[in-house]
Nucleic acid binder design. Structure first.
Lengths: 223, 223
DNA sequence: AAATTGCTTAACAATCTCTTAACATTCAGT
DNA sequence: ACTGAATGTTAAGAGATTGTTAAGCAATTT
């Protein structure tokens, strides 16, 4: 089952930015625009991680954090604060109230993602890297793919494509989704572009790993 | 037993910031707000590392450092200075009086953590990763890199760049991260600046050590 | 003041990556 | 089997990224 993340922030822009990037990374994301709403969703979906803006109208992040922690069921739910850069560090440091990490605003997607990944990994929610099976190992940190102990260099698009497919073995990704995730939401490329990359991937890692579902899309399989 | 660190700084904000981050990283931390208090705690807990502000009312960091070093029991205790960014490098370099490293203020947690980790690792307190292999040795104290027994002088930027890449062999550092860490968060330089430094590094240490991952970044490898 | 060192820039070259287009092949449904 | 739509294959060239070089500037040293 997918790892789920709840984003609570009053600014819509932030919610969308984070949501977009987290989903792209493969997480399941829900958002709330205030503390009350956030707590409701929390009870419903029991997320693995809550990303929480400190400064919000109504309940502020600290109150929400305390509310979360006061529920025994969520004592262990990970919480990551978003803080204004110029806020007093002493305040933040005092937030040992229950936050597991904090990220300063303005949030840069890359930074947030690496923190989120690190946090989940540390807590054992995430396993090291995306490892699909014993034969194909995708290591994003080193940007290499290992097959039977042999390192294979893949150009960026091929790497991202493989990473996407392998992130959910047996799941069929349709072309539209692949374009969105690997190329970007509003990039327009020709019809054969994906095929060409699939072909190169198959050439490099072996065609047995990627199966075509005609009329639907592609999926990664472990033979 | 946990690795312990003593932070001596007159500013409460700094103490809390560092304390928060070091604890999060798994260290055991004590703080002192002046030199005298610091020396007392030093005698009590015998920390593995002392982080020491240079500019403090009363005893300044240099005096504290000398006091620490004058005690035979702490001749080998690691000391890391916090220095104002605009202080003269030559002065700092001259502080061989006993410091093992220094970090410029304003302190950014990430930078400090990576320095602290590197320092402890280098001194064998931490075993985590290797900073270098047998062929390339990076000596931050002397600001010198040794390759096959030969000392190579590297200018500051090149040194920091190599130190960063080599701090995590095989890890791909993207350009943005490199800029943040080596140049500073909000320094703006042209597109080709990193490349030029990479080129000079390759020229000096051999191009086999630094690999380009096109569209992603660079990584240090041990051939 | 002249020379040196370190850093950055800019222009251009080299290289790697991606996309396209043309054509071939496969597959599902008749 | 046939047929149209979808996918596979290939090579070329367009596009993007990085490499290289030399020159200029600022700071430091002689």
């Amino acid at each position: 089952m997918a790892i789920s993340i709840l984003v609570i922030d009053d600014e819509e822009d932030i919610r969308e930015l984070l949501s977009y990037n987290l989903i792209k990374e493969g997480y399941s994301v829900e958002t709330a625009e205030n503390g009350e709403q956030g707590l409701e969703i929390l009870k419903r979906i029991h997320p693995d991680l809550v990303i929480l803006d400190v400064m919000m109208p109504g309940m502020d992040g600290i109150e929400v954090c305390e509310a979360i922690r006061s529920d025994p069921e969520h004592r262990k739910t990970l919480i990551c604060f978003l803080t204004a850069r110029n806020e007093d560090y002493s305040q933040i440091a005092g937030l040992d109230a229950g936050a597991d990490d904090y990220v300063a605003k303005p949030v840069r997607p890359k930074v947030l993602l690496s923190r989120v990944n690190a946090l989940l990994r540390r807590k054992g929610v995430l396993h090291d890297n995306k490892v699909s099976d014993d034969q194909i190992i995708i290591n994003r940190e080193k940007y290499v793919v290992t097959k039977d102990g042999e390192e294979i260099h893949l150009p960026r698009k091929e790497f991202e494509l493989l990473a996407l497919l392998a992130s959910r073995p047996d799941h069929v990704f349709d072309r539209e989704t692949i374009l969105d995730q690997v190329w970007g939401a509003d990039i327009v490329v020709g019809d054969r572009t994906i095929d060409v990359h699939i072909r190169k991937l198959r050439e490099k890692i072996g065609s047995e790993y990627i199966k075509t579902i005609k009329g639907v899309g592609y999926k990664f399989i472990m033979p």
